[in-house]
Every structure is written in structure tokens, then in C-alpha cells.
Write a protein that binds this DNA or RNA. Structure first.
Lengths: 204, 204
DNA sequence: AGAAAGTTGTGACTTTTGTCACAACAGTCA
DNA sequence: TGACTGTTGTGACAAAAGTCACAACTTTCT
């Protein structure tokens, strides 16, 4: 009854299924709970079974989004930590109530990587996709003005044309401040790109 | 006589050493040669045996450094491409004459990953380190003003206290323009942090 | 030596982003 | 209902980064 595939990788080996059952634990969290804190040792690999988790880095006064984890996704940084003891450099926070996390102690993750082919594929795939995604984000940050990054972000996050977030939240995800976002949104509205509501942005 | 370890990972398996000899080819390049071009299919994993390679992304008019490859390092992006056919999203260019590259066709890289333990460790290690490094670069880009990024960059690149690069080169690596760099360097000089010479910056 | 190419410095200006201060409004809860 | 908290708008200003134009200097090559 536990998942038999993760992120498109089908788990075929019976042994792996068994080991997963035996060694992984499941935890549930409420909105706002910290899943991982900056500077904390990582001891388990976390896979989001249900809900949404925001992974971000913080500065004294600002934050920037690294990625969201949705259903069946896993934190690349904690995967990375499985292969070499290290502390987290990011925070991860539950964005929804009833976020359910599968926790696998790091030593299994490491061993399975050479023992089970499907787990090996899973590991490599996570690294591959995350790395490409991050490079992309990196060059956007380097080359695109904030106005464009904001608009692209809205488009990518819109569910049926609508994003339900406050300006403050958007600022934190894009690594800037609330006033700047408010102003850029106003400009976008003037240019008929979006329509602004209370805690809600509609894309035209 | 070919390398028996790469990036701190010792190759112990005789079979792997043999396969490396049989399937890898060696190429040499001059300063300025393209090793990988943007939008090109990646067919071999490249490991730098000698010399230095600059990997960067470009925009219409600007560039930003992703990383340098030094002796015995490999391009994470081409490693990533070994596991899923894809085009390069970056350029790689030889920074020194006599850059020597080991080329391994992608299918071997993929197969060896589950066949040889040391190769598996190598793969994972590359991904791990590259990912952590990139996250770090990403949040520097997001949070640090250019002035600080410039100074940190100089310190990290200085050999016995000296960086031999033109302002134009620095601009391209930091994703900005020459005039901006010139001015920031002048300010750093005024603040007694560095001493400027022709195509040379001395750190105080 | 002298031309050409590359490098550095800088003033004047624009655009982008960040900061501060304050007002108005919406939603929640006692 | 009225206080409280969170959200949005905006003016005024400051700081950071980018652009354009041009001068002067170095290095390289013939």
C-alpha cells in the first residue's frame, strides 16, 4: 500500500519495497511547521507524500525561494546530505495542513543507490532535474529584470489563471521587498497583463 | 598510466580501468577553443586532464560564469546529460593552451554507474558538490550587492594575492558590464582593499 | 617607430531596486 | 460594533547598477 513509484520511477524490486516498509517512517505536519531548519544536521531523506513544502534560503531580512516540493517530490539537498554528513543550508516549511512526509534514514538511501537499480535511477534523476532547474533559475536571476521574473513567476504559479498570494509572500519568494512588488504589480495591471484583487492576482 | 582516480575517488576495479582505456579518447585544445557550445547535443562526458575550462551561460549581450573546471574536474551538465539525452544550455571554452580532455561516450557513463562502485561514488559526488556550490552562488547573487560579490570573487581567484584579469573579463564572469566593474574596483582601491595595475589586481 | 587593438578611467545620465513613512482598506474575532 | 491584524497603495527619496560617450594609456605587431 506504500507508494510503488516515486517521481515517475517505478519501484520493481520486491526487496526494495520491503526495505522501504521496514525502515521508512511517516510524519504529518501542519501549515507553518518547519520540516528542516537552516544549520541542522540532516539524518533522513524526506519525500513529500501529500501537501506542499517551501524550501528557501534566508538572509538577515530577506528570503529567496529555492524550490517548492509537491506530491511525491523530494528535497535534493537532503538527498545530497545522504552521501556525506552535512548541515542544511536552507529552511523547509509546510505550506499546507496535513503535509505528509516519508522519512528514510540516510544510510539506507546511500546503500540502496548501488543495490537497487530503480533507486539508483531515482537518485540520479532527482539530481539531474534539480541541477538543470537551478541553473535555469540562476541565469534568470542574473539576466532578467525583476519585473520579468515576477511576471514569469505568476504565470508559472497560476492555477486556472489565478495566483492567491499576498505581495509580501511574492516578495519573499523572489528575494525582494513588499513595496517593490506592489509597484511592479501596479505597472503590470496598467499594461493590462494582470488584474489585481485582495490577496489574489488574475492573469489576463 | 591513465588516471586511476578522479576528483578524490580512487578507481579500484580492474574492469573499470580497462573499460576506460578502451572507450575513452583524449583530445587537446588551444586557448579560446569551444569545448561545448550552447544548444549542442552532448554525446560524451568530458573530464579535464590538464588545463582550465570556463563554463558559462550567455544572454544577448552579457554572460555569467557557472563554474571553472580545473585539473581532474568534470562538467556536471554533461554528466547530467549522460542520463537523459539533452542539449547543452551552456558554453564551455578552453582558458589555457594545451587543455587536455578525456572524452567518455555517454552510454558508458550511465552503465558504469550501476556496475562499478567507484564510478557510482564519482557520479554522486560530482552532483552533490556541484549542487551545493550552485545553491551558494545562487543566494550570493540574490542577496549580496555586486561590490561584495566582486571582492569575494577576487579573493577566491587570487593566486598569491594577485588576480590577472581585465575588467572586461571580470564583468563577464560576474554577469555585469565593464564600466560598472571599473568603478567598483576604483572604490575598492580607495578603501585600500586592493591595488590596481594593468590587467592585474593585487589584494591587500 | 607607428598603427592597431585592447585596456582603463570617468563624467553625465537613466533605469532599477530598495527604504521610509504614512494612509486606507479588508477580514477576523471578542 | 470596534479594536486588531494583515494587506495594499503611494509619494519622496536614496542607493545600486546600467548606458553612452569619449579620452588616455599599454601592449602587440609589423
Amino acid at each position: 500500500m506504500l507508494e510503488t513509484f516515486i517521481k515517475g520511477i517505478r519501484i520493481t524490486e520486491e526487496g526494495l519495497k520491503e526495505e522501504l516498509h521496514k525502515n521508512a517512517t511517516i510524519t504529518t505536519h501542519n501549515k507553518g511547521d518547519f520540516i528542516i531548519k537552516n544549520n541542522q544536521y540532516i539524518k533522513v531523506l524526506k519525500i513529500v507524500l501529500e501537501g506542499k513544502v517551501r524550501v528557501y534560503q534566508e538572509n538577515e531580512d530577506r528570503e529567496i525561494l529555492i524550490y517548492y516540493l509537491n506530491t511525491m517530490e523530494t528535497c535534493t539537498l537532503s538527498l545530497s546530505a545522504c552521501f556525506e554528513d552535512c548541515k542544511s543550508t536552507v529552511n523547509a516549511i509546510a505550506e499546507e495542513d496535513c503535509t505528509i512526509i516519508l522519512n528514510i534514514p540516510v544510510r539506507f538511501v546511500r546503500d540502496w543507490n548501488f543495490k537497487y537499480k530503480s533507486w539508483n535511477r531515482f537518485t540520479i534523476n532527482i539530481f539531474r532535474e534539480s541541477y538543470l532547474y537551478l541553473i535555469d533559475q540562476y541565469s534568470n536571476l542574473a539576466f532578467q529584470p525583476l519585473k520579468d521574473r515576477l511576471f514569469d513567476y505568476l504565470v508559472s504559479k497560476a492555477l486556472s489563471g489565478v495566483v492567491k498570494k499576498s505581495h509580501q509572500e511574492l516578495a519573499k519568494e523572489l528575494g525582494t521587498t513588499r513595496e517593490v512588488i506592489s509597484r511592479l504589480l501596479k505597472t503590470l495591471e496598467k499594461n493590462k497583463k494582470i488584474h489585481l484583487g485582495q490577496k489574489q492576482i488574475e492573469i489576463v
